[in-house]
Simulated assay, not measured.
Amino acid sequence: MTTMTAAPSRMAARTGATQFYFYMSLCCAAVAFVSFVPTYWLPMKAGTLKVNPIVHVHGAVFFGWSVFLVLQTWLASSGRIARHRSVGLIGVSFATAMTIFGTLVAINGLKEAAAIGMRDEAIAFVIVPLSTIAFFAVVFTLAIANVRQPELHKRLMLLAAISILDAPIARWFLTFLAPPGAVGPPPVAAAIPPAVVAYLLVVAAMVFDWRTRGRPHAVYAIGGSALLLLNLLNVPISASHPWHAFASGLLALAQ
């Protein structure tokens, strides 16, 4: 009797876990879409958005990946594991394009800010998008390397998705908290509050793990801590001579 009742219980737990990742991916996609409403979607609809075309490509690639992640988690949660794996290479293509275009947009922003006389501010702030895309690329690569270990793979994929949400969330901070008429990049420290808001999703994942497996997975404990530490270290590193030399080199190549 105990064995017979335990089996359905374990099955229900596994089903709940896969559905959790589906809902988390939906949340990430919703945050990515809604957060760009005031600074991208509405200005584009009004015809007032003036940006380099590469920004549109960047946006399409990043949002396309978030939608693809929803599809992949839905396939997994509905038991279509073979289909989930067969289309996985599309995700690799998305992540590769995200790394490329994320870097290009960061450098384009550096160039545009320098052009309006904010060279030092731009050189400091470019560490934020570059470190974010680098973290995403590393975690995504680890997720692919552990594709045959589902417990690692799905958590790494979720961490990768959450790691790039600070930029969308920052749009609301800029919309409601930036001084009127502010132009150019904000201080590097201004990127920390949006990042902390995004990391609440990591906390939610840790709580879910705690309730379903008795303890948070190491991916969240180590990866989440590394992500938070990265954002905190961006502040002193962005003011260092080595970083200014590196970013100045990027700016020189872009001009």
Results as ranks from 00 to 15, higher is better:
75 L>A: 10
40 Y>V: 04
52 N>K: 10
65 W>N: 00
64 G>H: 03
29 A>T: 14
39 T>F: 09
45 K>D: 07
33 F>E: 05
76 A>H: 03
71 L>E: 07
65 W>P: 00
35 S>I: 06
49 L>D: 04
61 V>K: 00
79 G>L: 05
32 A>N: 08
69 L>I: 12
47 G>H: 06
45 K>W: 04
69 L>D: 04
59 G>W: 08
63 F>Q: 09
29 A>D: 02
56 H>S: 04
37 V>M: 12
35 S>P: 14
63 F>G: 04
66 S>G: 04
39 T>P: 15
41 W>E: 00
31 V>D: 00
33 F>M: 14
60 A>W: 13
55 V>F: 11
51 V>A: 08
55 V>T: 11
59 G>H: 07
49 L>G: 04
56 H>T: 02
55 V>Y: 15
68 F>L: 01
72 Q>S: 05
73 T>D: 08
54 I>M: 12
66 S>M: 14
60 A>V: 12
75 L>T: 02
53 P>M: 01
74 W>G: 05
33 F>R: 10
62 F>D: 01
69 L>H: 05
29 A>P: 05
76 A>R: 04
76 A>F: 14
71 L>I: 12
63 F>N: 05
58 H>L: 06
73 T>K: 06
27 C>H: 13
50 K>I: 13
71 L>N: 07
63 F>Y: 09
40 Y>M: 03
47 G>N: 05
42 L>A: 06
27 C>G: 07
40 Y>W: 09
43 P>S: 03
80 R>L: 13
56 H>F: 03
32 A>L: 10
35 S>Y: 06
36 F>Q: 05
78 S>F: 12
66 S>I: 09
50 K>P: 15
70 V>I: 11
45 K>P: 07
59 G>N: 11
64 G>Q: 04
27 C>P: 10
37 V>N: 12
46 A>V: 09
77 S>D: 15
47 G>V: 05
60 A>D: 06
64 G>M: 04
51 V>I: 11
44 M>E: 08
45 K>E: 08
77 S>N: 10
62 F>G: 02
